[in-house]
Amino acid sequence: MDQGGQTAANDSSRALLELRGVSKHFGPVQSLTDVNMSAPSGMVTALVGDNGAGKSTLVKCIAGIHSPDDGGHIYFDGKEVTMKSPKDAASHGIETVYQDLALCDNLDIVQNMFLGRELRKGLFLDEDAMENAAKETLASLSVTTIRSIRQPVASLSGGQRQAVAVAKAVMWNAKLVIMDEPTAALGVAQTKMVLELVRTLADRGLGVIIISHNMNDVFKVADRIAVLRLGRMVAEDRSDKFDRQIIVDLMTTGVSTRARSEDALSGAEGGAH
């Protein structure tokens, strides 16, 4: 929100989330090596990479599920933070929407959105307050396709479930929302709905990190793209500096000598090692 539009993309010193030299190994396996990355407010940052590139590990480091190796730094909102658990991350305002969404099919939308953080009046649940808050959040995200807020999640379509999971995440004053493959397994129309939702989040001033395999989606929604390859960040820049072919080159070989047709820019070399 305090970012100035396009300039923020490069002005990484003022980004909402800043990773500096983050590494992570599991036993002898080095999953992440010296990763720098930033995610500004009000922008969608796409994190792309081949299978095993370390996208999920990186996201889990941000979400507090893994703790990175010593030596790296994570800055959030200008302060250095250490996240030891998802609760720590949530207390900073970082919410993650996992691919499996973590929704209870047998509970309704309101119940899912408040799961683990129910509001109470005395001993009993305050259903009215929860219903109102859930309704407001969904409305603020322009989620208009849900018929009843009291229907079980089992009866929702894939896109609606994604919307509920996102609403659940942002309801708690999230500043940064991380989404893991939000459009995987969705049809065309549902994908469109979810991408619009992602855009809405960024327009509301939140930082969004989205992991995706789908280049169509990435170019449709992302303001910035970060490319991981074998645990290293090989490129990170505004998305108009890339095209599909450059991304594929970066993901597979780590470099791209291709020029983008419009501005003949070699966006990748700076990040190659």
Partner: peptide, 8 residues
């Protein structure tokens, strides 16, 4: 429920 997409 599937037709919700139409609204989008």
């Amino acid at each position: 429920t599937a037709d919700v997409v139409a609204a989008v």
